[in-house]
Design a binder for these strands. Sequence first.
DNA 1: TATAATTAAATTGTACTCAATCGAATTGAG
DNA 2: CTCAATTCGATTGAGTACAATTTAATTATA
Lengths: 142, 142
Amino acid sequence: MSDQNYDVLKLENQLCFPLYACSRQIIRKYHKYLDELNLTYTQYIAMLVFWEVRKINVKELGKRLYLDSGTLTPLLKSLEEKGYVRRYRSKEDERVLLVEITDSGDALREQAVTIPEKMNGCMNLTPEEAVTLYQLLYKALS
Amino acid sequence: MSDQNYDVLKLENQLCFPLYACSRQIIRKYHKYLDELNLTYTQYIAMLVFWEVRKINVKELGKRLYLDSGTLTPLLKSLEEKGYVRRYRSKEDERVLLVEITDSGDALREQAVTIPEKMNGCMNLTPEEAVTLYQLLYKALS
DNA sequence: TATAATTAAATTGTACTCAATCGAATTGAG
DNA sequence: CTCAATTCGATTGAGTACAATTTAATTATA
C-alpha cells in the first residue's frame, strides 16, 4: 500500500478548510465593530433575532442559530447581565425559558444598523459573487 | 429616526451567518469520523499539513492554517502527547519551535485517507457547485 | 559593542462550541 | 390515574479561538 495516493488529504483539496478559515476571518472583522456595542459575534447574531422577533424561547433560538443550550445558556445570561434581554420561565410550561428584548437592547439597534454597511466590501467579492456564495451556503446547510 | 429601515439587520440578509453555520455544521460531521482517529477537527487539519511537509515551525503552520500560537501551542502539545508529532527548538534559532511528524503520526495517514470519501456528498452540493463554492471562499480569503 | 527593536512561542483571560449528562416538568399509554 | 418516555434548559468537561501580554532569543543601529 505504499503507492497509496494521498492527494485527497492535501489541505488544498479540502472544501471544509476555506469554509472554516473564511468563517473565522469574517467573525474577526466583525469584532472590531462589535466591541463598540460590547457584543461578541455570537451575541450579535442572537441580537439580530431579538430585534426581529422581540421574544423567543431557547429551543427556537437554537434552531434559528444552529446552536444548543450549552452555548446559549451562558450567552443569554451574559446578554441579560448587559441589560439587553430579560429571561423568565413560561407560565404555561415551566420547562420553557422565554427571552425577551429590553428597551436597552432595542436602543442598541440604532448603533448596530451601521455595521452591515461597514462590513460591505470587506470580503473581496463582487455583489454577484456574494449572492452566489450565499445561495450555495444555504443549499449546503439544508 | 423611528422610520429607520432595519432590513440590513435581518439574520437572513447576512452573508456571515450561513458561512459561520455551515462551517460549524461540516466540522460537526467530521467529528464522527475523526473520533476513530482520536483527533479533533483542528488537530486533523494540522495533521493534513504534517502529512504533506513532515516538519514545520509554529509560525509557518499558523500561516497555513490562519491560526496563532494561542491556539497552536496547546494543540501541538496534545498531538505530541498522542505521539503523532515531536516538538523541539531549532538549533539555529532557539526562538523557533520545530514540529515533526512521528512514525505513529505517519501511520495515521492510512486510516485518514478514507475520510474525504466518507465526507463526500455530506453537503448536498453537486461537484460543480462544490468547485464554485471552493473558488469563492478562496477568493474571499485572499 | 551596548542597547533598542524585532521576532517567535508561550501564557493569560474571556468566550464560545458541542457532546454527554442531569434534573425538573410535561405528556402519553395502559 | 400512574409510571415510563419525552422534552427543555442547565451543567460539565475538553478543546478551541483570539487579543493582549510576557519571556527569551536574535538582529540592527548608534
